[in-house]
């Protein structure tokens, strides 16, 4: 699968951009948090696309954001 670049993303209609990023993020998140993957992916998609692209290329940033999202989610559900 080709990397998702900013230019490839910009070529897509706005309503498809988040979807394209989500399709990349979901499997990575599913590896870490199987049960919560759908919710975590939805939360992270609210972040700016430019930052999401950086996260896709940086496992450390992605995992930090995932843990942040889980903490927020747990606080929200409490």
């Amino acid at each position: 699968q080709e990397p998702l670049t900013a230019s490839r993303l910009a070529a897509a209609p706005l309503h498809e951009q988040k979807q394209m990023i989500g399709e990349r993020l979901y499997p990575l998140i599913h590896d870490v948090h199987t049960q919560l993957a759908g919710k975590i992916t939805g939360m992270l998609l609210e972040i700016d696309n430019s930052e999401l692209l950086l996260m896709l290329e940086s496992p450390e940033s992605l995992h930090a954001k995932i843990e942040e999202a889980v903490a927020v989610l747990q606080a929200h559900q409490a």
């Binding site: 309503h15 979807q19 989500g22 979901y26 919710k39 998609l45 989610l73």
Partner: peptide, 22 residues
């Protein structure tokens, strides 16, 4: 309130509903 439905879940192959709020 609407916060009950937050976050909008993403599932592969399914149009993400969070797009309505962007």
């Amino acid at each position: 309130g609407s916060s009950i439905n937050w976050p909008p879940e993403f599932h592969p192959g399914v149009p993400w509903k969070g797009l309505q709020n962007i």
